[in-house]
Structures are given as structure tokens and as C-alpha cells.
Design a protein around this nucleic acid. Structure first.
Lengths: 199, 199
DNA sequence: CACTGGTTAGTCAAGTTTGAACATAGGACT
DNA sequence: AGTCCTATGTTCAAACTTGACTAACCAGTG
């Protein structure tokens, strides 16, 4: 399974635990997860089972709400917590030039890391993006001087550059919001992320 | 199979036809396709077979180069040409707020459409992106005033907005390049896209 | 000549994703 | 009361993706 799916499902259980599949399903759909992450409902249940088999999630029992169908709830194991932080940290400190899914994952799950690290990681991204943009200019030069690479391959790099600039601006903006206290990060007192009202 | 994989493989056969799988494999990897499109070599061969079974591609025979292994070459059928243009046109005239794969596909394959349409489509995208950004501000307002949606859902929209702005700038820039004659579009005299020198 | 490592061209089994379908219950409407 | 639609909670078969692996050939080296 893709890293994205595992990270999203593990992160979502971590935030809402103990939690059952259908709640995750609805919540993730409100985040438009199906539009950017190759995740449909079946993928969520498959990920729950796979992560459970790998020891990262554990079943927390079954329960019912009123006369509704019985549901299985999950929680993150200690191994799962370690793996979640590992994946998040890897994502935070790595800039992908062409793939936008990792940074989309950050917008929803970086709060499991500490505020100080996230700020440092975002600052690093701002710098790393500058380096990648500079690197892209050399790729573009190579395409221009190549007699074998189609000229339009330039546009892959041009678009990636334009988008990285947008992402860089977001990183600056969100850093400012985080610095001034927005959101609740690991280790901080504060309410758990609110359950959706329809739970 | 995902629309992206079908479009990429059909588009690549269209550009390089008649062409065998290994050439596509190497060519697409130089375009970093594996980094943003869930396409590894096995997916290319699976797509070739699936598109052939659907009638969009036809085997063009087998050939050998020197003592190398025998290879099967493919070409696009008339149905395939129709489908390719349909998918490309749909992609060109549709702005996705969260998914960046479609516009990445455009950078490599929009040359199968006519120059005039591509310019019109890009202009439309510039406008459509403005609308989506405006729409995103209302989503952000909703998140802020909601007592049930986690506050950080705002960041999904903020990042999408920042990235759309970058894409919008690219659309403007590439439009200018296209308007002044860069690249070769459908119906225009000009060399086929150059084969990679290692063919 | 023999060996080693790289290239060509494609295959393959396991895991993942998709787009419903399924079973049950509740609510609205006639 | 009966019917239809929606909600809950999950499963499922088919198709797709992954990350090698395979077989044959080529080039370089000792």
C-alpha cells in the first residue's frame, strides 16, 4: 500500500481514536481525500486491516450506537505511534519536486509533531524549495540544449517550479500562523480535534 | 486503471508510434512519471495490454534490433485517437482544486490538440482558477465558523490556493510561449517529437 | 576464452485501489 | 401500512500498481 494511504489512515486514527471505519470514511471525504490521494472507502478499510496486521493499529472492541449496525473501533499501538511520527517527520523534512500528495498530508497531520519541530521543518522547506527551483533551471537548460529530449519536457519543470513557489509561500504563511499560536501540537494542552457533529 | 495511467500511455504511444514498451518505459521515466503518477514499469505494460484489449491500441507487429530481444510495437487506433483527444480536452478544460496530476499530464500531452484550443483552454483555466480561489475563501470561512470541523482543515484550502496561484502563473507564462510559436501542435508541419537518442 | 556487470524487453505474484454491492435500520411520503 | 430513499458499517471481485525477477544479449576486463 502506498505510504500516503497508510499515513493518512494511521494519522486519522491517531487523531480521533478510538474510532470506527465509517467515521474515518466520512471525515476523510470531507477533507476531499478522494480527490488527491487515491483513497476511496474500500482503501480505508483495507488500510485499517493492513495496519492492524502489521501491529500499528489494534482493535479497541466493538460497540453499537443505538440500533445502528455494530462497528469495530481502532486505536494506535505504541509501534504505530512510532511509525506515524517517523512517516510524518520524513514527510515534513523532505520536499518532493513533482508529487504534491506529501505536503497535502502535512496540512492535516503535522500537529502530531511538536510545534517547534514543525516550525523548523517548514523553514527548512522554504530553503529546500529555493534549491530545487535553482536545480530546475539547470534541468530546463539541459532540455533546451538537448537534441533528443522533446522541448516540451521543459514545461514539466516550469510547472513544478511555479507550484513550488506557491507551496513556499504557503509554508511562510502557515509558519506565521503557527508561530502566533494557531492549532494544537503534540504535548500541548488543548482540546482534542473536535469530532464531527454527525458522529 | 486510473485515467492518468491510460492517458499517459495512450498519449505516449500517440507521440512515438509505432513504439515498443521498453522505449516508453525509459522515456516516461526520464519525465519523472514515477514520481507523480503512480506509474512503474509494470503499470505501463499492463496499460498497453488493457488499452489494446479495449481497442484503443493495436499491435503493430514485432521486430528486433540487432540481437536484442524481440519487441512488440504498438500504434493508436482510430478509436484510440478519439479517446485520447476526449481525455485531453476534458483535462485541459477542467481545473482540479486538489489534484495536480491532471495538469502535469497537460505539460506533456496537450500538443495533440490544436494550438488555438490549447490557448483558449489555458485562458479559461486562468479564469477558472480565480473562481476556485474565491470559492476556497468561503470554504476557509466555513471552517473558521464551524464548531465541529477541525481548524486545520483550513490549511488544505490555503495550500490548494497557494498552489493554484502558482499554476495560474505557469498557465500565463506557457500561453505566452505558445502564442509566440513554441512547440508543435496538431495539424502543424513540423518534426515529430524526437526519439530519444538511445533508441 | 571466461567471467562479471550492465542492458534489453517483458513478466509476475502480492498487495492496493476501485466502485460498487450488501445487510440492516430509520425517516419521509403516500 | 407500505414503499422508497437515506444512513450506517462493512465487504468484495475485478482491475491496477508495485518492485522485483527472468532470459537473453552485449561490453569490458583479466
Amino acid at each position: 500500500m502506498s505510504t500516503t494511504t497508510r499515513l493518512v489512515v494511521l494519522g486519522a486514527v491517531h487523531q480521533f481514536q478510538p474510532v470506527h471505519g465509517y467515521f474515518l470514511r466520512r471525515e476523510l471525504m470531507t477533507w476531499h481525500i478522494d480527490e488527491w490521494a487515491n483513497i476511496q472507502p474500500g482503501s480505508i478499510y483495507n488500510a485499517l486491516r493492513s495496519l492492524k496486521n502489521d501491529g500499528y493499529l489494534a482493535e479497541n472492541g466493538t460497540e453499537t450506537a443505538g440500533n445502528r449496525p455494530e462497528r469495530t473501533t481502532y486505536r494506535v499501538t505504541e509501534e504505530g505511534e512510532v511509525e506515524l511520527l517517523r512517516m510524518l517527520r520524513d514527510t515534513l523534512w523532505t520536499v518532493e519536486v513533482f508529487d504534491t500528495k506529501p505536503v497535502m498530508v502535512l496540512t492535516s497531520f503535522m500537529y502530531a509533531l511538536q510545534r517547534e519541530e514543525v516550525l523548523a521543518g517548514l523553514l527548512h522547506r522554504v530553503t529546500e524549495i529555493d534549491a530545487r527551483i535553482a536545480s530546475n533551471t539547470y534541468h530546463i537548460g539541459d532540455v533546451a540544449s538537448s537534441s533528443s529530449t522533446p522541448a516540451y519536457v521543459r514545461e514539466i519543470f516550469e510547472l513544478a517550479t511555479a507550484r513550488l513557489r506557491g507551496e513556499q509561500q504557503w509554508a511562510r504563511d502557515v509558519s506565521e500562523r503557527i508561530r502566533t499560536g494557531d492549532y494544537v501540537f503534540a504535548g500541548e494542552d488543548g482540546d482534542r480535534p473536535a469530532r464531527a457533529a454527525t458522529d
